[in-house]
Design a protein around this nucleic acid. Structure first.
Length: 871
RNA sequence: GGCCCCUUAGCUCAGUUGGUUAGAGCGCUUCGUUUACACCGAAGAGGCCGCAAGUUCGAGUCUUGCAGGGGCCACCA
């Protein structure tokens, strides 16, 4: 059995990725599955237009670790993959494609356009899934879903109708966020706010039939064309006398009333506001309260309407300039000052949002939010990290109704029909033939589609067959865990909780793990325009998928952003390389020692020092890893494995085993033990580095006597054992070797210098010398008792003889420094141990611990003094 | 304006319920190529754990204030 000299993951990663799928290893048969121990998780569906980015990679890697861990623990484990139809994004991609052909969607017509989008989806929509396969994500491809599938579309209609019937969906004319570029209404969470350096203009409005005038501050002067009132605070003494009078709208000369409304802050600006009910959310409400006319001067295309008189057809920002100029010329512009304006932008295209009044469909969110908050409050859903709950509650408590209609063509059509005859609306599951109210056949389906997040909000149960009571739904719902980025807490997580509770009466998942953002090496957000995007596909090609997984995982503290550096990935590949080479060593020596077969898991009979020790270390590692995974501390689990593999297994265990192999003294029981440890280590590592561990495990299994498992991913995950600790004296071996190495490094290897230690370990002095890279270690018996070369207890003095070099002042300096440090520690420990308050208050365990430490310091001090004493 | 998070080695970051020598990776210094690995090994240097006060026998860890950085939310024209 030989391993190639160089670790080249490209050679085997694609193979295993494909093999895992072909072998249907992760496909769950719900009929035969154990339903008492179930772990289920759904993938956050990536946009069907998307291609894999580093954020997906992190998300999927963490999920895959969790999934593989649970599966190896013997739970019935399901990971559902799928994609999201991504309304606006996909529509825009296809429209761009059409434009290249000189076509428009309007030209094609709705039906043909939808056909083209489906065609696009069939052609390109699989790309992201191919990339996910490459990651090694152990999803069940037989259960792949798409939000526009028939089944999921049915779930969408069912939900819509139910909410409508309960009065939780309504239709009405309100002010919404309108994106002039996307040509649709969007919800509040789809907007972002940005501070922009703008101006605050003051405009003079003349009061009718008087010499008086008032100044009004605004950041959007073009909206004055749609003003239908001025407003002051009812108690503002400066303006009380004007209430009820009329002002003259500059430029247009319209008469508008001066009204009183408590929303006006008398301390801001001049204390007078212009009221534009059709173009400002506050003014909209004032307009309703006071029955003001709504004059729409800006249209859906962000151009001025006919109502804007001479400014009609101008772009809104051009109109702003012209209005300002005109006001300046007419002398009605009182003041211009620089001002920071908070504008809202479309989250997708960054176009400045135009608040517009239009008829839309809304979800009444308050009642849903109440239930959602309750579920989190009583712990039916737990957030990791926990402090995200605060943000969740804060948002939920102030939640506003959710505008769910979109003026797009790609998406779930709203299941509502308008009767041309009686004008009434029918909301039903199946397309109606006649109007149930007037029996007319003149029905027309509402043209709008639903917000993409409406269907993704159903994802955890719609993918499992809801509203049917399927076996999948019964077995896997509620799902166990959701892993996703913090950035979609409101978009997706909150909506799933609300809709899940409403539709199924159950929480959609019991835990939510939210990871941070992957940033570039300088902590900048990655973006195409900045050109700092790390493409996971490129990294996987260059370093291997396992290396990228490890690099991400080792930094993945819950909630924390990750600054991904190239050298992190390099060192992660170094780790994989280390494991590869450790395996090479083992495999080569198996051949050399003519070890042809191996019986896995055989009773652990070897009592050699290093075997007892590594067993203990591995047990501790297993304990740490299992516990860390249980509590979603993936970075700690990874770190624990790294330390164990590199610094215990490779640096010490194999260094000693190597000597035994070389002497060809490795008996069968030692080989059994070494391979047991090695194989368990591969299993411990498997969720983290699935490819490399599968590759190595398969090679190892070729000589195994037990071949009943097809893949390491189906093997048991090592669990900590209860009583594995046996005295082995290995720490003494380490001490002796380390001390000898120190001496060697310092060239301070005068034979007069001695290092006293009690060594109780089955290891030969010559082997210690070899590990310490010394020509020779001389041991000298000090007390009574026998001394056998290989195994006895003995008091010894080491005379370390270097291969080269002589004693140096550096060593002396180092020892003196060490002595000073120890003396300080001893002094402070003694001080504390003589403090009666400490002795009476601190727990016994702590006091005894300190006493033991003090003794340790004193021994070390003596050792160092002895080292100097020889001079 | 409200809320949340962060500040630990030169850099990037870990550090669960407070427990007594604060860790990793990269970088740096010195040494080393013994047939697993130079994508390596060994030995080192490097830290008033942002500042100040408090609680405690004991604080990187808890409380308060301050300073700096980041984020989320918010209709103030």
């Amino acid at each position: 059995m030989q391993l190639e000299k160089v670790y080249e993951p490209q050679r085997f990663e694609p193979h295993w990725a494909q093999w895992w799928i072909d072998s249907r290893l992760y496909q769950v048969d719900v009929k035969t599955a154990d339903r008492t121990h179930v772990f289920s998780i759904v993938i956050p569906p990536p946009n069907v237009t998307g291609s894999l980015h580093i954020g997906h990679m992190l998300d999927h890697t963490i999920m895959d670790v969790a999934v593989r861990w649970h599966r190896m623990r013997g739970e019935t484990t399901l990971w559902v993959p799928g994609t999201d139809h991504a309304g606006i994004a996909t529509q825009m991609v296809v429209e761009r494609q059409l434009a290249a052909e000189g076509l428009t969607r309007q030209g094609l017509g709705r039906e043909e356009f939808e056909r083209r989008v489906w065609q696009w989806k069939e052609e390109y929509g699989g790309r992201i899934n191919e990339q996910i396969r490459r990651e090694g994500a152990s999803v069940d491809w037989s259960r792949e879903r798409f939000t526009m599938d028939a089944g999921l579309s049915r779930a969408v209609r069912e939900t819509f109708v139910r909410l409508w019937e309960k009065g939780l969906i309504y239709r009405g004319e309100y002010m919404v966020n309108w994106c002039p570029r996307c040509q649709t209404a969007i919800s509040d969470v789809e907007t972002t706010h940005k501070a922009i350096e703008g101006h605050l203009w003051q405009i003079r409005y003349r009061i009718q039939d008087s010499d008086e005038s008032v100044s009004v501050a605004t950041t959007r002067p073009e909206t004055m064309l749609g003003d239908t009132a001025l407003a002051v605070h009812p108690d503002d003494a400066r303006y009380k006398h004007l209430i009820g009078k009329n002002a003259i709208l500059p430029l247009l000369g319209r008469e508008i009333p001066v009204i009183a409304d408590a929303i006006v802050d008398p301390r801001f600006g001049t204390g007078v506001v212009k009221v534009t009910p059709a173009h400002d959310p506050n003014d909209f409400e004032m307009g309703q309260r006071h029955g003001l006319p709504f004059v729409k001067v800006i249209g859906e295309d962000a151009r001025m309407t006919a109502a804007a008189g001479p400014y009609a057809d101008l772009d809104r920002f051009e109109a702003r300039k012209r209005v300002v100029t005109a006001l300046e010329q007419s002398g009605e512009l009182v003041k211009t000052e620089p001002y920071t304006v908070n504008v809202s932008q479309c989250d997708r295209c960054k176009t400045v949002i135009e608040p517009l009044v239009s008829t839309q469909w809304f979800v009444r969110t308050k009642p849903l939010a109440e239930k959602a908050m309750e579920a989190v409050r009583i712990g039916r859903i737990r957030f990791v990290p926990n402090d995200r709950e605060v943000v969740f509650f804060q948002w939920m408590e102030n939640i506003r109704d959710w505008c769910i209609s979109r003026q797009l063509w790609w998406g779930h059509r709203i299941p509502a029909w308008h009767c041309r005859n009686c004008g009434r609306i029918t909301v039903v599951r199946e397309t109606p033939a006649t109007c149930p109210h007037c029996h007319s056949t003149e029905l027309e389906q509402d043209p709008d589609v639903l917000d993409t997040w409406f269907s993704s909000g159903l994802w955890p149960f719609s993918t499992l067959g809801w509203p049917e009571e399927t076996e999948d739904l019964k077995t896997f719902y509620p799902t166990s865990l959701l892993i996703t980025g913090f950035d979609i807490l409101f978009f997706w997580v909150a909506r799933m909780i609300m809709l899940g509770l409403e539709c199924t009466g159950e929480v959609p998942f019991r835990e939510v793990h939210m990871h941070g953002l992957v940033r570039d090496a300088e902590r900048q957000k990655m973006s195409k325009t900045k050109g700092n995007v790390i493409d996971p596909l490129v990294v996987m090609d260059r370093y291997g998928t396992d290396a990228l997984r490890i690099a991400l995982l080792i930094s993945a503290a819950a909630g924390a952003d990750i600054a991904l550096k190239e050298n992190r990935i390099e060192s992660a590949r170094g780790f994989a390389n280390k494991l590869w080479n450790a395996s090479r060593l083992l495999f080569m020596n198996m051949e050399r020692s003519a070890i042809a077969t191996w019986a896995p898991g055989k009773a652990r009979t070897s009592k050699s020092t290093e075997d007892l020790w590594i067993r203990e270390r591995q047990n501790a590692c297993s304990e740490a890893v299992n516990e860390a995974l249980r509590t979603h501390r993936y970075h700690e689990a990874t770190q624990a494995l790294w330390d164990f593999v590199w610094h215990d297994f490779c640096d010490w265990y194999l260094e000693i085993k190597k000597l035994r192999f070389r002497e060809n003294s490795g008996q069968d029981e030692q080989w059994t033990e070494a391979l047991n440890v090695y194989e368990s280590m591969l299993r411990l590592l498997h969720p983290f580095m699935p490819f490399l561990t599968e590759e190595l495990w398969q090679r190892l299994m070729s000589v195994s006597e037990d071949k009943h498992l097809a893949s390491i991913s189906l093997a048991d995950y090592p669990q900590p054992e209860e009583h594995v600790a046996q005295p082995h004296g290995f720490s003494k071996v380490q001490q002796v070797v380390t001390a000898a190495r120190e001496l060697r490094a310092d060239h301070k290897l005068d034979p007069k210098q001695v290092f006293p230690a009690t060594l109780k370990a089955k290891i030969a002095p010559d082997d210690l010398a070899a590990i310490a890279s010394l020509a020779k270690l001389k041991f000298e018996q000090v007390g009574e008792g026998g001394f056998s070369r290989a195994t006895a207890d003995f008091e010894l003095r080491i005379h370390a003889v270097a291969k080269n070099g002589a004693s140096t002042p550096e060593a002396r300096t180092r020892i003196l420094k060490e002595i000073a440090r120890l003396e300080e520690l001893i002094a402070s420990s003694e001080r504390q141990l003589s403090d009666p308050v400490f002795l009476s208050r601190a727990p016994e365990k702590v006091v005894n611990g300190l006493r033991a430490k003090l003794a340790g310091y004193q021994a070390q001090l003596q050792k160092n003094k002895d080292l100097l004493g020889g001079e």
